[in-house]
Computed example of a mutant assay.
Amino acid sequence: MTRKHLLLLPLAAAFALAGCVTPREGRMPEFVGRPISVQAASGQVSTLFLRPDGSVEARYNGKSTVGQWEFGDGNLCYIWGDHPRECWPHTAPFIPGRTETVRSDRGNVVKVTLQ
């Protein structure tokens, strides 16, 4: 392998990894890397941290859990362990500090605020 090929390997690997986490729309959503506050109908507040690698961490009541997130076709979807996938409509960017009410494809309603 030539020196030129060795220099291109890290770049090729970075593009390959980026392809694994880039949403189907081809852009990284505004909420990646920023905390999202989610208030359930019960009043419980969780903070979500969506990472570029497709993982998501939820912190609530001094606990945390990790899952996966996907974004595409106007939906932000989560998979938490063995729970069914749940998708939330997301057709316009969140505005930091503004609270929005959204309903999932499973009928759950939450208030969401991008920090």
Rank of each mutant, 00 (worst) to 15 (best):
residue 48 L to N: 01
residue 46 S to G: 07
residue 82 D to E: 11
residue 55 S to E: 14
residue 59 R to G: 15
residue 28 M to W: 13
residue 44 Q to P: 02
residue 28 M to Y: 07
residue 41 A to E: 14
residue 74 G to T: 12
residue 31 F to I: 15
residue 83 H to W: 00
residue 63 K to I: 04
residue 84 P to V: 00
residue 52 P to Q: 09
residue 54 G to D: 04
residue 58 A to P: 02
residue 72 G to A: 12
residue 48 L to E: 01
residue 72 G to I: 11
residue 36 I to S: 06
residue 60 Y to P: 05
residue 76 L to W: 08
residue 64 S to I: 04
residue 48 L to A: 03
residue 82 D to H: 04
residue 75 N to T: 07
residue 83 H to E: 00
residue 38 V to L: 13
residue 39 Q to P: 09
residue 42 S to G: 09
residue 69 W to K: 03
residue 32 V to R: 07
residue 68 Q to Y: 05
residue 55 S to R: 15
residue 56 V to F: 05
residue 50 L to S: 05
residue 77 C to D: 09
residue 82 D to R: 06
residue 67 G to R: 01
residue 74 G to W: 12
residue 37 S to V: 12
residue 50 L to M: 13
residue 65 T to D: 14
residue 29 P to F: 03
residue 41 A to D: 13
residue 28 M to E: 10
residue 29 P to Y: 05
residue 54 G to M: 05
residue 56 V to G: 04
residue 29 P to R: 03
residue 58 A to N: 08
residue 83 H to M: 00
residue 51 R to K: 15
residue 40 A to F: 11
residue 68 Q to N: 13
residue 32 V to Y: 11
residue 60 Y to R: 11
residue 28 M to I: 13
residue 57 E to D: 10
residue 70 E to W: 04
residue 74 G to L: 14
residue 83 H to A: 00
residue 47 T to D: 09
residue 66 V to K: 12
residue 62 G to V: 03
residue 34 R to N: 10
residue 46 S to E: 08
residue 35 P to I: 08
residue 55 S to D: 10
residue 52 P to A: 14
residue 48 L to S: 01
residue 79 I to T: 09
residue 40 A to V: 09
residue 62 G to S: 02
residue 76 L to F: 06
residue 40 A to Y: 12
residue 31 F to Y: 15
residue 32 V to M: 10
residue 52 P to W: 06
residue 54 G to I: 02
residue 62 G to K: 01
residue 37 S to M: 08
residue 35 P to Y: 05
residue 58 A to V: 07
residue 29 P to Q: 03
residue 33 G to C: 14
residue 79 I to W: 00
residue 43 G to Y: 07
residue 65 T to Q: 14
residue 73 D to G: 08
residue 43 G to V: 10
residue 72 G to L: 13
residue 81 G to K: 00
residue 73 D to L: 06
residue 30 E to H: 05
residue 73 D to P: 02
residue 81 G to W: 00
residue 62 G to I: 02
residue 48 L to P: 01
residue 66 V to N: 10
residue 33 G to K: 11
residue 34 R to E: 12
residue 80 W to Y: 02
residue 70 E to D: 12
residue 39 Q to E: 15
residue 76 L to Q: 03
residue 56 V to Y: 05
residue 69 W to T: 06
residue 52 P to Y: 08
residue 75 N to E: 13
residue 38 V to E: 08
residue 45 V to E: 12
residue 59 R to L: 12
residue 44 Q to H: 06
residue 62 G to T: 02
residue 83 H to S: 00
residue 65 T to H: 10
residue 58 A to C: 05
residue 76 L to Y: 03
residue 84 P to H: 00
residue 74 G to P: 14
residue 44 Q to S: 12
residue 84 P to I: 00
residue 46 S to F: 04
residue 71 F to M: 14
residue 71 F to W: 11
residue 81 G to A: 02
residue 68 Q to R: 15
residue 63 K to D: 10
residue 51 R to N: 15
residue 60 Y to K: 08
residue 59 R to Q: 15
residue 42 S to P: 07
residue 36 I to F: 04
residue 41 A to P: 07
residue 77 C to R: 09
residue 62 G to Q: 02
residue 74 G to H: 13
residue 63 K to S: 13
residue 62 G to C: 02
residue 75 N to S: 11
